[in-house]
Design a protein around this nucleic acid. Structure first.
Lengths: 325, 325
DNA sequence: GGTTTGAATGTAAACGCTTACATTTATAAA
DNA sequence: TTTATAAATGTAAGCGTTTACATTCAAACC
């Protein structure tokens, strides 16, 4: 067994209270005393037991990041980015980070964390448990209708608008979209915004220019091919995300179309794959690391008892123009 | 404040011991009693306090995954994969997972976890602290010379051998390598194995067929171009990882070389980018999720007091042949 | 009905800290 | 030196569980 505060107390000849203070509130003990304590601790290789501290202090200095997305996880580049941002902040603040993909996480061992950052689509059911236990909540990349939790979201409308208007500014009039079948809310926003922007510019959206595909390359490739081989094909394709846009590019290349001359392609997310493609894929960048950092800072703020000045933080995406447009 | 076991005890009219038993050892209390307890707990919305349990049981049911790699993190596809594997297992076993990129993690709050899985290159210094505290240790994707910790590693020699012999079997005699400058140990193994396999087959390795590059696409592209534009260029390039191989492909495409006819390219890691490229990139697949799962299972084994039958588990990589070769 | 026995429950001492409050010690002022 | 005051330290009661041990209860046997 590791040594306890009592052993240090005995060896250094001071009370356990003083040992405790020497560790967690050094200014409150005399220099000489602190030295004695630390020396004893060194000899015994003592470190305060974190669990006992949590027990006594009623706080764990743990927060959790929960990825609430059906079939997705830390493997998702976007959530990994958020997680990375959260890790940076929690590390600096000396908080520990628990990570889980979670539907039902809330039901078990809830009171082990001071706060939980929910990424993806949390449900009211998940959240109510935390609320009852007074566990702090921050939402990231998601809004929960009817609630005003502190949250960090990305301005997808603007992102899509930038992508589409970029195509238009390049002279494209026949623009197709490969809509997605992944996160329902996101897919809806991206498609709806695509439509409104085109309408605003007086451009038509014939049905044959729209296809819905699964978020994997082969399906995107199939659907893109269908769009491209028709009579009077579009001169540009907007993919609902980079994976889908990648499929579009592959289809175009296989059909012998030149990118961007015969057909331009743009994606969304600015994932790593964009720079790997030839030509490189234009896309819309969302700074997910910053989203993570911001949500973690919000959480720390909450935990230190501050109310943040506002509850909704919006990250503005950036258009990244590359060779594909 | 949340209710405690005492509140439940009072409301249900039994002792706290019985409440505790009703929760953590249901068979040991009479059906009727358990029902009373559970009803009281339901009314009070009681849940056992996990911290107090950890305190009393002297176990946290937390394990940590530490990514010990200088400039890398959960953003790294490979470590994300390991992490995903660990998460699956810990989730099933109802353990919580702490994740951190760590150099110095060991120094602080060490005793909050029952065990730690170290990914990347842990140092003896990091480990000694855990050993003293009797925290269980498992290594993944790394060996620690001179120690025999339970560990899961990938058989890189075989992986490289498969890649190179695949090129040879395709008739290539002039094979170049873009060696890497990332993880020193890995880079060394990959390069050395490349050389020995070529030697075994009596093939030359002229200096002009080897270049070392940083693990980013632009640099790989530059170096690959240097290799390709020389007189008597290689007919195949082995990239030390997929990023580097991607750069090689881009260089070849830009130079107007046909892949795989003018030059074949193969990578290592089988990351997501492989299937995005056109043609798709052949590579060597390491099942990192399985490495994660295995290391987590090893850890759970250790924590339940079993000695694993052996300490070194080797994952065999698989060759994935695609259009680029 | 009285024993015996095993199961169910209760009592109370840990687990290793923190912290309000009490006490002692050092410092400054008179 | 005495006294007032502030700083340092000590005492002991929590924090919310678990669990060894003691006690009670119920069923089964004689």
């Amino acid at each position: 067994m590791a040594h306890t505060i009592k052993d240090v107390s005995r060896l250094s000849g001071v009370s356990t209270a003083t040992v405790s203070r020497a560790f967690s509130n050094p200014e409150s003990v005399r220099e000489a005393t602190r030295a004695k304590v630390m020396e004893a601790a060194r000899i015994l290789d003592y470190q305060p037991n974190a669990i006992a501290q949590s027990m006594a202090r009623q706080t764990t200095e743990h927060i959790a990041f929960l990825i609430c997305k059906h079939d997705s996880s830390i493997l998702d580049e976007f959530y990994a980015g958020i997680c990375d941002g959260i890790m940076r902040v929690t590390k600096d603040a000396d908080y520990r980070l628990l990570v889980s993909t979670a539907d039902d996480w809330g039901s078990t061992r809830r009171n082990q964390v001071d706060g939980v950052i929910l990424g993806g689509s949390a449900t009211v059911g998940m959240i109510s448990g935390y609320v009852r236990q007074n566990t702090k909540i921050v939402l990231v990349n998601h809004e929960l209708g009817g609630f005003d939790f502190p949250r960090v979201v990305s301005d997808e409308q603007t992102g899509v608008r930038m992508a589409v208007e970029h195509l238009i500014s390049r002279g494209h009039r026949k623009i197709a979209m490969l809509a997605g079948r992944f996160s329902p809310y996101i897919c809806e926003v991206r498609f709806n915004t695509f439509c409104s922007v085109l309408k605003e510019h007086g451009l038509p959206i014939p049905d044959r220019y729209v296809r819905i595909c699964d978020p994997n390359i082969p399906d995107a490739e199939r659907q893109a091919e269908r769009i491209l081989i028709q009579q009077d094909p579009p001169t540009a394709i907007f993919g609902a995300n980079d994976v889908i846009a990648t499929g579009a590019m592959k289809a175009a290349i296989r059909l012998g179309r030149k990118i961007p001359d015969d057909v331009a392609v743009i994606g969304y997310d600015d994932s790593r794959v964009c720079e790997a493609l030839e030509p490189e894929l234009s896309s819309v960048h969302t700074d997910c690391t910053r989203m993570g950092e911001l949500s973690a800072k919000l959480m720390l703020d909450l935990l230190s008892g501050n109310k943040p000045e506002k509850n909704r933080f919006v990250i503005e995406p950036k258009l990244v123009i590359r060779g594909s447009t």
